[in-house]
Write a protein that binds this DNA or RNA. Structure first.
Lengths: 139, 139
DNA sequence: TCCGGAAGTTAGACAAAGTCTAGATTATTG
DNA sequence: CAATAATCTAGACTTTGTCTAACTTCCGGA
C-alpha cells in the first residue's frame, strides 16, 4: 500500500482483492481508514463518512468494520477501555500509547525482537501478538 | 504473596501497606481478587462479593477497583473489547488470551526478552508494557 | 460525651459503545 | 419482469461504566 493513491476506484479494487463486494458504503468506510492511515474508532469513522451528508448508518459502520476484520483488511486495537480502534495497517507492528492524550504511534515489528515465549498447546495457533507500550508525561 | 493465607486480617494488612484505609467493603473486594489469583471483571467481583447477602454497591465496586489501581495493588487488563479485567498479580508478567473461551493465563516476564524498542521522548516515562498473545483453536 | 467535618458508601439516574431486529432498498439471476 | 439474495437502515435495546446527591460511619477536639 505504499505510494498508493487512495481513490474510490482503488478502494473498490482493494475490497475485491479481499473478497468483499465493494458497495458504496464499504468504499467510503475503507477510504476513511486508508486515506488517513490512522487509528480510528467506529465513532470517528462514522463522523468522517457522514461529514457532508448522511451516507451510512451506525449499524452499517459496525457491520462493515466487523466484515473488514474478518477479511483481514484491517486490524483491531484493544488499548483504550472505552472503545476499540481500527488500524488500516496490517503489517506486523506494535504500538505506543500515550495514556493522557490517547495518541497512538506505530513501532515497526522488524526492529523489535521478542524471545522466550512459551510453546502453545498442539491444538492452538497464534492469532496475533499485541505489544503495547503505555507511556505518559513525567510530572 | 507466596504461600499466603488470604484471611480478612491479612487483607487489611495488605491494604494498609498500600495506604488504603481497610473498610469492610474494601477487604471483601480485595479478598475476592487475591484469594482467587484470577483475572476478574468488575461484574464478577461484584457477584462474588454479594453471593451470600448484599455487601457492596456497584458504585463502591468501581470506586474501589479504581482506588486499588491507583495504589498499585492490582493491575488493569485491557484485552477484551467489552470489559476490563483486574489482575491481582502485579509482578511483571504477560498474558496469553484464548480468544474463543476468554481464558487468560500468565507468562512470567523473566523468561521473555523484548529488545529493540525505540527510545522515548525525554519528557515521557513508561507506565507499563502489555504483551498479549492471542491464540485460538485450530479448525 | 457531643459536635462537626472528612471519608466512605449507596441507589439509581445517566452516558456511551456496541448489538439486534424487522423492515426497506438494491442488486442479481433466471 | 418476478423472485431471491445481499445489503442497508432506524431505532430499540443491552451492557459497562460514571455521576450525583444523599446517607452513614469514623474520628478528633472542646
Amino acid at each position: 500500500m505504499k505510494n498508493m493513491h487512495y481513490t474510490r476506484d482503488n478502494m473498490a479494487e482493494l475490497l475485491r482483492g479481499h473478497d468483499i463486494n465493494p458497495t458504496h458504503q464499504r468504499i467510503e468506510i475503507a477510504h476513511a481508514l486508508f486515506s488517513r492511515q490512522e487509528h480510528l474508532s467506529a465513532d470517528q469513522v462514522m463522523a468522517i463518512v457522514n461529514t457532508r451528508h448522511s451516507e451510512t448508518s451506525k449499524a452499517t459502520v459496525y457491520n462493515t468494520l466487523k466484515l473488514f476484520l474478518e477479511k483481514r483488511l484491517i486490524r483491531e486495537l484493544i488499548v483504550d477501555p472505552s472503545k476499540v480502534f481500527y488500524d488500516p495497517n496490517t503489517t506486523p507492528h506494535h504500538h505506543i500509547y500515550e495514556i493522557d492524550s490517547g495518541k497512538m504511534s506505530d513501532i515497526d515489528a522488524d526492529q523489535v525482537k521478542i524471545t522466550g515465549l512459551p510453546p502453545l498447546p498442539d491444538n492452538m495457533v497464534t492469532e496475533g501478538i499485541d505489544l503495547i507500550v503505555r507511556i505518559r508525561n513525567k510530572n
